[in-house]
Design a protein around this nucleic acid. Structure first.
Lengths: 259, 259
DNA sequence: TATACAAAATGACGTAACGTCACTTTCAAG
DNA sequence: CTTGAAAGTGACGTTACGTCATTTTGTATA
C-alpha cells in the first residue's frame, strides 16, 4: 500500500490532483487507514499513467472516465476523431501565426502605427471572406497567376520578404526627403534590383501588378496588404525620378536604350 | 446611437458577450437611455473589431484591456512574444499528433488490444526521456544512423508506413496458422520485398537492425516501437521457413546462390 | 506515554469567458 | 393603455485544478 505523497512523487502528479481524481471518481483509492488516509496500489499507478497519457492527448477528464469505464469503447473512432480535432487546431494556429506575422510586418511598414496596421488587417480579413477569384482571373493570365503566388504577402518569414518590408518601411521614413534624395533613390534601386531578380523578363506582369498596386481597392481584392495612397504616389515619383536620372546619365554618355 | 442587438448583429458577437465586456470595463457603452438600455456609437464598433481581432490572436481579455488602455504599450515585444507562444503550441500539437498516430497504428499491430498499445507507448515515452545517443553510436556507423532515420516509426501517415503496420497486424493475426502457412509466407515475402526496396544493398545494416529488433530492450532504447517477443520469434521462424522453401526450390532446379 | 511535528483530510474560494436560465423592467407600436 | 419584444440584472454552471485555512492523523522522540 502506497501513501498519496509517494504516488505523487513517482508519477509527478500533484497530491491535490490525486484527491481531485478521487473526488470525481476517476481514480478512487482502493483502501484507507482508520483515520481516512488514502492508500494506493501498483494498479492505481498504472491507471494513473494511463490517465495522464490520455490527458496529454487532449482528452478531458470526463471523456477519459467514460473511456476507461466502458469495456466496449470504440477506440478507433475516438482516436481518429481526436486526431482530426488536433489537425484542425493546427490549422487554426497556422492562421494565427500568419496573421501575427502580417501584423508585425505591417507595423514596420506603417512606421510604428499599430492602430493603422490592425485596421488594415481587419479590412483585409473582412474582404477576404467575400473575395471571389473573378478579379484575379480577369486581369492576369494563368502563367501570371502563378507568378502572383510568389509576390511577398507580408506574412512570410523568409529573408526576402523581410527585406521588402524593411525597404517599404525605410521608404516611408524618408518620404520627407523628397523622391530624388540619394537615400530614396538607393532604396528604389534596390527594389528594382530585387524585382528583377524575382521576376526577370516578366515586364508585362510587373506592369500589371503595379497598376493593381496603385489602386488600394484592387490590392485589397487581391489579398495584398493595402499600401496607403500617399506612399504609393511617392514610390511612383521616386521611380520616375530614378528613370530621369538614368536617362540623364546615359544621355550624357551618348547612349539610350530604355523605352 | 445603436442598440445592443444591432451591434451584435453587425459584429456577429453575442449580446451576452457585449454585456460582459461592459461589465469588465473592456467596452463600456458611452450612453444609456433613461431606462438603462445601452447605446453604442460607430466608435465602439471599431473598438469591438479591434478587440475581436486581438482575441483571435490568442490574447486574453485582461491582456487586451491592458493593451488598449496603455498608450505606451510595447506592441513589438508583445506580438513577438505571442508569436513565440503560438509556435510552441504548434510544437505541442505536433507531438500530440505524432503520439496519436503511433497509438492508432499500435492498436492495429496489437490486434485491437488498446491497453497493450497504450502501455507500450507509455514505456516508450518514459524511455525517451533518459535516452542517450550512446547506444545508437556504439552499434551503428554514421551512414547507418542516417538509414536509421528512414526506418518507419509508427507515427507516419505515408502509405509506406501504413503498409508496414498492416503487414505486422496481419502477421499477428495469422500466427495461429504456423510460420510456413501460405498466408504467412506471402506476408514475409512482401516484407522482404519492401525491405529490399528501401534498403537495397545495405545488408549489414539490415542485419544489425534485426539484431536490435530481436531485443525489446534495445528496440526501446532506440525509440523503436517494441514488438512483443512472441511476434518477433514467430517472424524469425517464418523467415527461416521462407529461406528453406527458397533453397528447396532453387535446389530442385539445381541452383544455389544464397549464403 | 505525552508531545511535537510532518503529512493528510476537508472545505471553500478563485480562475476565463461566457451560455443559459429566471425574473423584472423598458421600449415602441397599435 | 396594453402588449409583446427586447433589454436589464443576478445567479449558477463549466474545467481542472492551485491555493489558502482549519482540523485530524500518523509517527518518532524524549
Amino acid at each position: 500500500m502506497i501513501h498519496i505523497k509517494e504516488v505523487a512523487k513517482q508519477t509527478d502528479i500533484s497530491v491535490r490532483t490525486l484527491r481531485y481524481y478521487d473526488q470525481i471518481g476517476l481514480l478512487t483509492a482502493p483502501a484507507k487507514t482508520e483515520g481516512g488516509h488514502r492508500l494506493y496500489t501498483e494498479e492505481e499507478l498504472k491507471r494513473l499513467q494511463y490517465i495522464h497519457f490520455l490527458k496529454g492527448m487532449g482528452y478531458s477528464l470526463k471523456e477519459i472516465k467514460k473511456m476507461l469505464s466502458d469495456p466496449n469503447w470504440n477506440w478507433r473512432d475516438s482516436l481518429n476523431n481526436q486526431l482530426a480535432c488536433i489537425l484542425e487546431e493546427q490549422q487554426r494556429l497556422k492562421r494565427m501565426e500568419s496573421s501575427l506575422r502580417e501584423l508585425i510586418h505591417g507595423i514596420v511598414v506603417e512606421g510604428g502605427d499599430e492602430q493603422a496596421a490592425v485596421q488594415k488587417l481587419i479590412q483585409l480579413s473582412q474582404q477576404y471572406k467575400k473575395r471571389s477569384p473573378s478579379l484575379e482571373q480577369s486581369i492576369f493570365s494563368k502563367r501570371e497567376r502563378e507568378l502572383l503566388a510568389r509576390v511577398p504577402k507580408m506574412n512570410g518569414e523568409d529573408p526576402d520578404t523581410m527585406e521588402w518590408i524593411a525597404l517599404l518601411g525605410q521608404l516611408k521614413q524618408h518620404m520627407k526627403d523628397g523622391p530624388d534624395s540619394p537615400k530614396v533613390q538607393s532604396i528604389v534601386r534596390r527594389m528594382l534590383e530585387k524585382q528583377a531578380e524575382e521576376f526577370e523578363d516578366e515586364n508585362e506582369f510587373i506592369d500589371k501588378l503595379w497598376e493593381v498596386r496603385k489602386s488600394p481597392q484592387q490590392s485589397e481584392l487581391l489579398g495584398l496588404y493595402p499600401i496607403e495612397q500617399e506612399l504609393l504616389d511617392f514610390m511612383e515619383q521616386a521611380y520616375e525620378a530614378h528613370m530621369v536620372l538614368l536617362q540623364g546619365r546615359l544621355g550624357g554618355k551618348g547612349e539610350y536604350r530604355e523605352s
